[in-house]
Computed example of a mutant assay.
Amino acid sequence: MIRHAGRDSWLTDIYLILFLALLGGLGIGMAATHTHFLLVNVLFLGVTFCLILLTYFWGMVTGLLVNLAFIFAQIVFAIYEEQLNPQDFIWSLTYWLVLPLLLSVTFYGMTVHARRLQTENAKLRSDLVERGAFDEATNLRTTVSYIEDTAVFTETNRRFDLPVTTMIVRIRYFQEMRSMVSDTQMTALLKLVSATIKDAMRTNDITYLIDRNNPTWAVLLFTNADGANIAAKRIKDKFTEALPKDTELANLEVRLVVGVASWDPEKMKNPYDLMNAGIKETEYDV
């Protein structure tokens, strides 16, 4: 994919340079013939822009066909003018035979490769999110990172006997309120909760957004359940203070529920067990 992106990038640059060079050639041609053919030049210029747009929106085949039709019309026009009013300089307009076609082709090529770059970039961002690097809206790590980091935390627990606890944060009655919340408010709510959690935690506590459909945040902490419950209360208090100050969310009644679960090597075998235990605890937060 990276190789294709690099090729599309330099092809886009080449087509852009060619397009600009052809525009320069068109300008020189129009300047050289403006004395005798000002109206014809203006008319042909308008047709050229139409041909470029037709090629862009309808594709290369359609663009080539309409350009060939324009070339044929020019030849018929030149022959007619030659028969009606013989003059040698009518053939000085021959640059209009090729430049509209070349401009259409180069502009189409430039936009095609630019669109491919945009598609590849969007896919890369999507893959990055799916693979757990970060959530695009909140800049928080996601589920895959949570699972990987939990394995590190639990290994530290095994080696140094440090308590490891996860804290799961959800929005109470989210499914019921989702239909009453606009997309803009939903984005604002995700950002507010994320910022509140990060602000309430210590710098070495890692915050994750592990589910966007039913917004679920997780925090990994080197502490016991009592210490995590203190942090949970701090999160709730800060969120209660911050919610009325947000203009997008001030009219909403939103409450957070928090579940706390500590790592138990006797009962838990993998990071999913710890995460699911924390999610289960949110059901008992009243």
Rank of each mutant, 00 (worst) to 15 (best):
P244S: 09
W58T: 06
I71Y: 07
E120N: 09
D226Y: 07
V258F: 00
N251I: 08
A232Y: 03
D88A: 12
G227Y: 11
T138I: 04
P86S: 04
D226P: 00
R255T: 14
A228Q: 07
Q185S: 09
I168L: 09
R141P: 01
W263Y: 15
V286T: 09
R7P: 06
L117V: 00
R3V: 13
P163F: 07
T55I: 03
L43F: 13
T196I: 11
L11V: 08
P163K: 06
L22G: 01
Q185G: 05
M60L: 15
V66N: 02
I171Y: 07
N276K: 06
L16A: 12
V254W: 04
R7L: 15
I206N: 05
L103K: 01
V112D: 08
M110Y: 06
L45I: 06
V40G: 05
T207L: 05
L84P: 00
L11N: 09
P86M: 01
Q118I: 14
D135L: 08
Y173A: 14
I168R: 01
R255G: 10
P100S: 06
D246F: 02
T156E: 15
V105S: 00
L51Q: 05
L84E: 13
A69R: 03
L124G: 02
T207N: 10
L140G: 03
H113P: 00
A225H: 06
F89Q: 13
I168Q: 02
F49Y: 14
A277G: 05
Y272C: 01
F222H: 15
T62G: 10
E266R: 13
I28E: 04
L97Q: 05
